[in-house]
Structures are given as C-alpha cells and as structure tokens.
Design a protein around this nucleic acid. Structure first.
Length: 920
RNA sequence: AGGCACGUACAGUCAAUGGUAGACGGCCACCCUUACAAGGUGGAGGUUGUGGGUUCGAGCCCCACCGUGCCUACCA
C-alpha cells in the first residue's frame, strides 16, 4: 500500500481544495433530492482589504463544520461567500498608496480616485478569498458577492429610497461625531470611549457684571474657603462682585458657552435664576437656565453649557432655545466665532491659551488631575469632536420595535442566550443612526438637489427628474447629486437578502431566505446583527436567520486581546504552517465555547496535531494490513457473515454508534467542543488503543481464516465511518485518507454523515468490555508498581464470581495475556494468598500475581492500605446517604438503585481487600 | 454608574442535563512492543474564590462579598 510513513499536512492540504472547487461539490445544486431540507448561511463579509486573522479562522471553521455536517447529512446547503467594500478602511489603503506617489485623493478628483480604488480591488482584493481556500471553507464561490456589486448597490438604493419615502431616512442639522482624522462624520458605534488622563478646571465667571476687571484678586482663596465643609457652593461673593464657579475638562469650549445650567432642585442657586453671568475672555451674557440633567453633587452643581460641542449641552440648547456657537471647526481648529487671538489655533493649543489667560485674569481657581472617558474615532484614533453638521440619518425606533419583538417571540435565538439581554438593552435605547460619510469610496447617496436646494431622492438622475416632473416642478433644472456616501454598514445590513438577489424575487431568495444560522463575533452585534434583523423584517417581512451563534474571541497565549498596536497578533497562516490546518481547525473547535473568549494555546495545538497524526497512522496501519481487502473494494457493511462478532466487535460497534449519536446531538445544539471531544476519545482511546490492539493478531496473521477476514472488514468499516464523522472538523486529512479506502462516491464531502442505529447500542457489551479493560489495566498496574521489566515473564490468577464475566475472560484469555503481558493466566476459585503475591481487588474480580523475590512487602501493604482507605471513605459516604430516609424517599429511583449497587460492590471489594491484607 | 460573563489539579489552558470532579499540557517512573517516540504503559496532584441559603443531594440553582474580563452609558 502506498501511504507515506509520515503525516505531512502540507502536501495533503494542498491538493484537495482545487479538487473540491473544480468539481463544484459546494454548490447546493449538488443535492438533487427534491425534498432535501435547506440549510443556508451567509458569511460575515470580511473587508476586501482584509487578511485572515485568528477570529476569522475560528468563525469560518465553525461555519464550515456546520456546512459540511449538514451537506453530508443530506441538506441542500448554501454557504454564501463575499466581501465588504469597507468604505473607510479601503479608502485609507488606497490613499496611503497614493501618498507614496506624493499624491492626495483630491489631486486625482473623485472619479479617478474611485477608479483607482476599483483597480486596487481587482489586483489586491482577493487575498482573503485565497486564504479561505487554505482554511477549507466549503463556500459556493459561484455565488460570491461584493457589497459594491451592481446588484447589491441596487438593493442599497432601493432601501434608501423606500426608507426615505416613508420618512425613516431624513436629512438635518444635528450634533454629530466628527472625526478630524478622517474628515467625516461617524456613527455613535464608531466612537470608542477610552479613559484619558486629563484635568478638571474650576473657572470663575462673573455674575451680572458690566465689566470684567483685568485681574480679579482673592478668588482662589475665597473658593478654597467656600469648598470646605457642609455649605459647599460655587457662588462666591467678593468685594469685586459675585462670581460663579463652573467645572470643565475642556476649557477651550467655554468660548462657545451660551448659558449656565443649574438643577431646578438646587437651593444653593435659586437666587441666580433670572440673572446672567458673563463669559470671561469673550464677554457674552449667559442666562441661567434650570435643567434636571444637571447633577448637584458633581463639581459645583453649575454647568457651563456649550450647545455646539457637547451632546448634553446640545439637548439643553434645543430645550431652552439657546444660541449655538460653533467654536471648533472640522479641522479641529478654532473658528472665526472666537476672539481673534484664538482663531485658527488647534483645539489643544487653544486649551492652553484659554487656561493661561484665565489664570492671568485670576479666574482659574483650581486644577485637578482627572481621568475621564473620551470618545476616540475607532478607525483613525483621533479624539472625536462633537459638532453641528448637516447629515443623513435613519430613524431607528420604528425599525427597532419589530426587531425586539422577533427575538421576544423566539423567532430568533441567540447562543449564548445571555446576549439577548444586551440586544434588548441596545435596541430599547436606540439612537438615530448617522449614515452619511464624507468619503468617496462607497455607495453614493441617491439624493439630488435643485438649485433651490430642494432634495429629490431617486435611483438615478433620470428618475430624479421624473419625480420632479411628477410633483409639477421644472424637471430641466440643473441637479447636483449629494457628495456623500453611505456608512459601510448600510449595505452590510442588507447582506442576507441583497446577496440572494433582492429586490428581485429570485429563486435563490425564495429558497434560501431566511438563512438557518448566523455565526459571528460579539463586537458586531449592534453594527451588523441587530441591523440585519431590522432590515430583514422591514423588507422581507421575516427574520434573516433563525439562530445567531456568537463565537469566542481568540486571545493570545498570555490571555491578551490581539491587536496590531500591541503587536501580539498571531497570523493563522503561520499556525497552519506549523501544526497543519486540520489540527488548527480541530483545536479551535475544541477550545471554543459560545460567547466566551479563550487563549490560543500551543500545547493544545500540539495535541491536536498529534491527533491528526494518530488518524494518519491508524489508517496507515489498516492500509498496510488490509491491502487485499482494499483492492477488492468490497462494499462496506458491518461484517456478520464470515464470523460471529466477538465482544470487542460488538463493543466497538456500540461505541461507534454512541459517538455518532453524541456528535450529531452536540452539533445540532452548537456544542462544537463536545463533538470534538467525543470524537477525540472515541478515535484515540477506543479505536486505536483497544480495538486496533485487539485486532492485531487477526490482522497480522498469515492465514486467510474467515475470522481474520471478518476483523479486517470490521476495522475498515469503523475507520471509514470515523473519517466521515471527523470530516466536518478535519476536512483535508479525512478526504485524503478516505480516498485511499474502499468508498462509494467521488468525495467524502458528499458522503453520508453517519447516523446512529439504536439497535447497535449495546450496553452489555460496553459493560463487559469495560470489565476486560479494567482487568488488563490492573494487571499492567501491578507490573508497573513493582517496577518489573516487560521482559520478565509473569503468571496471574483471576478469581471471578460472575459466570458471564468468567465466560468472557475465558474467551479473551489470549488477548488479556498479550495486552497485559502475562505468560499464564489461571482462572481460579480463590486466588493464592502467598506472601510474595501482589493482589488487586476489582469490582467483581480478584487477581493475584506471584512475584517471588520481586515484591517489597511493606510497599505492597502500604499500597493496599491506601486503596482500602479510598474505597472505605467512598463506602461510608454512600452508606450514610442510603441511611438518610429522605434520600431513599425523595431521590430518583434509579439513583437510589445505583447507589445500592455501588455500595454492595464496594463492600465486597473492601472485604476482599481486608482478607488480602490479613494474609499478607 | 449600569448590564453581562468568568473564578475548578501545577501561579498553565479549559470540560463536567443538581446525583461518587475530568481532559490536554507539564511533572515522575518504565518501555524504540512489528501504525504512530507527534508513540505506549502506569502514577502523583482538587475540602471546585469567600460566606450564607434552597435541596435528600450543589462546581452547577438563589443571595451577598472579593477578584478578573467584556459590553453599554450624557457625569460636565
């Protein structure tokens, strides 16, 4: 048989993906049974600029396991791949490329720049797709989509127009998050709050004063005095007049203050209502307003209100009809609205200048260290500037309501369930979504403006004109399209149906929507999952998926989150290279639990690799020894004709069926790691360590006896089924080995996934085999304990009460002798009690191994006493439990029976051990 | 600040429908036994963060506390 001695993942992993892809095994049309259930998934589209990272590797492996498992189980499986145009990320990549040529995107102009991005995409945009092939993703490449495809772009325009016509999309001037780094508005979700060490500045504003002196003396001391004791107050009465003290982390924004707010309940400042303060450095009059949002306990309970640069202040500004003075521009520099000396200063320079001037004027009363959360732009890292700007928004509340309802009704299930609460919490407090971006790469907003500034939303300019005409207006005017593009997530949220052809009612859409399950990471639950649910319900009238499985976060070996800035990112391709892709897949599946993070662990990767090696070598053993069987390519059925199945045969068949049941159940409930663990132990412990070992004498025998042939056929049968069970997790190695075995069909990908047969589950065989394993293990133990070399021949006596068990031992004598390395096995009524005899008491059997001269009596006594102590303590616990009337009355009957049985076994063992010790 | 997780053997990584706590790695001892030293055999090691409660019975359910993560949030 031609099978390389060493398992080399690289060579076998290279050849199979092209084979699968060329023959189109992953197209759902491969499944021709008309009644086949549908199983569909859409891949979370990676950024077109992206590289496969560890998170993808896990996310894709989970999906691939499901896809392969369902496909083999007979479902018509569609797993649809694709990529996201990733507006900002992609634009930045190309801009960086331009920068190397000394160009900015503005130098090219919009049209040329966008063409350049497309060009980049054609040449460099396919990286992740190639990496997905390396990982083994069984996606249908013929249906690959891109969020800027013609079809998907069409869907985007359609959705925009429908939402606009319904009033769910609107344009308006509001306080938005501005990224000075990217020069665009961003959504709330794209703002990352990070603690920043800053200062808390206490600043005095004069109250109702006509003129502010150049320098006020003594305020600092007055404030220090006022800050003490019970009567803390931010109202200072001095010879120079009354002052109030406000507290801020951003003194530069004071230039845009237009009011001072106090809590209506705050008795300290009642007297101020109706009066006004004067803004230092500027001179503007600031009315005192009352607003419950002000917390009395914080600072002085007096809040400077900057409606144009703070979300709360903006809201107060709206409530109280305040003036909105924009003092910081989109370039993060001070605007013309501030006193001349500050104009054009960067916001942080302005802060220094303002602080210095306030100090000089005697109005800076106190500066404290203060760590607070500051919004950062997720992409560029710059500090976000809240400012007022005209943007497009989606009104979310009406869309959120049905999305909450759908989950409440159980039409969508989250795994783990705990994310449901997070989901509700976000949707119940949802804010409108700013969707316009001042970028060039993306879906351009389908809105046109007439010279009068009227908005016409339409699919294209021609339709815009028709719409104008329809409303009785001049359709020949010059129309200017909105310059902005949409947030990338606007198109991704349509992914589950836009990829299937929507708004056309295609066959794919009818067949595969809603999808079966979405596997994704927790960081995009709001960005993506929630919005897909809203859009699916809105435009398809049905949820986009039945189940959402949140996969783990993969941490570095130290348990730290991987990040580029930390430099601890592990490239999955390097890990594939080191351990083999199948091993990495197996590892990821066994290590991950829904919703929880785990640290990448080299030792476990190694053990996964060893497992793959084990599979390889077990197959190698079978191939080397069952060659003639393979050439005959006989059908693989469980052999019962040639020879009656032995205990070992019945046992392995039972184990195989049990693990089949476990794997199917575990996968159906998304308990991936349990499926992996069950397979690992079955294959290694049961099949390799016991069944193959037991089969060796038959398989390596020179004679062509029927029982030899039978065992070989059973070996191949179990192995072939095992490979099928393992295939979804380890696709490459299983395909490679399966092709070498007798098999039906072109590929293991389309071979049937085993299902268990209840009648082949054989509890008795498993119990009896368990007893054999115990017996052999205990005999080996004795040799090991007394440090006896394997070359020294040993005799053993076995005494068994149970007749059936005795039969089994007789039957398996030769196996026991070989596996326990015993020369002679004597079945006796009572085992010898000689002084030089090692003894062991099993459940239901007693063994003795004469070890004249080899045994250390004291050591043996100590060992047996330890054993006795262990058994006795267990016995006592269980005895006590049985003695408890409540236990007998209330516990389940089978538990009580089980306990009784265990107690009787224990008591028997204990008695025998005592005897043994006495006779020692 | 609120919400959600997690805390189990060696400072390692993680399992265990409420019914006598396991795996992997590491460690110790012995073996190159004709598929595999990426292997085989045997072994040591845990009062499951702390304190209560529910239960015949709790690692698992409830409460509080301590510790660690993650998410959300308008504390100037």
């Amino acid at each position: 048989m031609d099978i390389p001695k060493a398992y080399d993942p690289k060579t076998i992993e290279k050849q199979w993906y092209p084979f699968w892809e060329k023959r189109n095994f992953f197209a759902p049309e491969r499944q021709t049974a008309p009644q086949a259930p549908i199983f569909s998934m859409v891949i979370p589209p990676p950024n077109v600029t992206g590289y496969l990272h560890m998170g993808h590797a896990l996310n894709h492996t989970l999906q691939d396991v499901l896809a392969r498992w369902r496909r083999m189980s007979g479902d018509r499986v569609l797993w649809l791949p694709g990529t996201d145009h990733a507006g900002i990320a992609t634009q930045m990549v190309v801009e960086r490329q331009l920068a190397k040529e000394g160009l900015r995107r503005q130098d090219l102009g919009r049209e040329k720049f966008v063409a350049r991005v497309w060009e980049w995409k054609e040449h460099h945009g396919g990286t992740i797709q190639q990496q997905m092939r390396l990982l083994g993703d069984s996606v249908d490449w013929s249906r690959e989509r891109f969020t800027m495809d013609e079809g998907l772009s069409n869907a985007v325009r359609e959705v925009f127009i429908r939402l606009y016509d319904e009033g769910l999309i609107y344009r308006g001037e509001y306080l938005i998050n501005w990224s000075p780094g990217l020069q665009t508005a961003i959504s709330d979700l794209e703002v990352e709050m990070k603690p920043v060490k800053g200062k808390l500045y206490h600043i005095a504003y004069p109250v109702q004063s006509d003129r502010i002196p150049a320098k006020v003396e003594g305020l600092v001391e007055a404030y220090a005095a006022a800050s003490e004791g019970e009567t803390r107050s931010g109202l200072l009465r001095t010879a120079a007049g009354d002052f109030i003290v406000v507290v801020t982390t951003r003194p530069e924004t004071m230039l845009g203050d237009t009011a001072i707010a106090i809590n209506p309940q705050d008795e300290r400042y009642r007297q101020l209502v109706g009066k006004s303060a004067v803004l230092p450095l500027v001179g503007r009059r600031l009315p005192f307003i009352e607003d419950p949002i002000v917390e009395q306990e914080f600072g002085t309970g007096l809040v400077k209100v900057t409606p144009a640069h703070d979300p709360n202040d903006f809201a107060m500004g709206k409530r109280h009809g305040l003036e909105f003075v924009t003092v910081i521009g989109k370039d993060a520099r001070m605007t013309q609205a501030v006193p001349e000396k500050y104009r054009g200063l960067d916001r942080y320079e302005a802060r220094q200048a303002v602080v210095a001037d306030l100090a000089a004027a005697g109005l800076l009363l106190k500066v404290e260290d203060y760590t607070h959360n500051v919004g950062h732009c997720q992409r560029s890292g710059t500090v976000v500037e809240p400012l007022i700007s005209t943007q497009w928004f989606v009104k979310m509340e009406p869309l959120a309501r049905p999305a909450i309802e759908a989950v409440r009704q159980g039409r969508i299930k989250f795994i783990p369930e705990s994310v449901t609460k997070v989901y509700y919490n976000w949707l119940e407090n949802i804010q409108d979504w700013c969707i316009s971006r001042q970028l060039w790469w993306g879906h351009r907003i389908p809105a046109w403006y007439t010279p009068e500034g009227e908005i016409v939303v339409a699919r294209d300019e021609a339709e815009a004109r028709r719409r104008l005409a329809a409303s009785g207006q001049d359709a020949t005017v010059e129309l200017r399209q909105d310059e902005d593009v949409l947030d990338t997530w606007f198109s991704s949220q349509l992914w589950p149906f836009s990829t299937l052809g929507w708004p056309d009612e295609t066959d794919d859409l009818k067949t595969y929507y809603p999808t079966s399950v979405l596997v994704t990471a927790s960081d995009i639950i709001f960005f993506w999952v929630a919005r897909m649910i809203m859009m699916g319900l809105k435009f398809m009238g049905e949820v986009p998926f039945r189940t959402v499985y949140i996969n783990s976060l993969v941490l570095d070996p130290e348990g730290q989150k991987m990040s580029k800035t930390k430099g601890n990112v592990i490239d999955p391709l390097e890990v594939f290279d080191k351990y083999g892709t199948d091993a990495v897949r197996f590892y990821l599946i066994s290590a991950s639990t829904a919703g929880l993070s785990f640290a990448l662990q080299p030792s476990k990767l190694e053990s996964a690799r060893n497992f793959a090696n084990k599979i390889w070598n077990a197959t190698r053993f079978v191939l080397l020894n069952c060659g003639e069987l393979l050439e005959a390519n006989e059908p693989l059925v469980w052999e019962t004709e040639l020879a009656r199945p032995t205990l070992a045969d019945r046992w392995i068949l039972s184990r195989l069926n049990r693990v089949t049941l476990e794997v199917n159940e575990a996968l159906a409930e998304y308990r991936f790691h349990e499926a992996a663990a069950a397979l690992y132990h079955f294959f290694w412990d049961d099949f390799c360590d016991w069944y193959i070992e037991l089969a060796k004498p038959y398989v390596t025998a020179k004679t062509e006896a029927p029982e030899n042939r039978a065992v070989k056929r059973r070996l191949v049968y179990v192995l072939e089924r095992s490979l099928r069970l393992l295939h979804p997790i380890m696709p490459f190695i299983t395909e490679d080995l399966w092709q070498r075995l007798p098999h039906a069909g072109e590929t293991i990908c389309l071979a049937q996934f085993p299902h268990h047969e209840a009648k082949q589950l054989d509890d008795r065989a498993e119990q009896e085999m368990g007893a054999m394993i115990e017996l052999i293990t205990r005999l080996r133990h004795i040799r090991s304990i007394f440090n006896i070399a394997p070359s020294v021949p040993l005799q053993a006596q076995v005494a068994i009460d149970n007749e059936a068990l005795k039969e089994t031992v007789i039957h398996m004598t030769e196996h026991i002798k070989r596996l326990a390395r015993i020369e002679q096995l004597h079945l006796v009524e009572r085992v010898a009690h000689g002084r030089g005899t090692a003894r062991a008491v099993l459940s239901g059997a007693e063994i003795a191994v004469p070890l004249e001269g080899l045994i250390d009596l004291e050591k043996e006594r100590a060992r047996l006493e330890r054993e006795l102590a262990k058994l006795t303590s267990e016995y006592e616990v269980l005895e006590q439990r049985l003695a408890n009337e409540d236990f007998a009355n209330r516990a389940a009957a089978d538990i009580v029976a089980q306990t009784r049985h265990r107690v009787s076994v224990l008591s028997d063992q204990i008695n025998k051990l005592r005897t043994t010790l006495e006779t020692l």
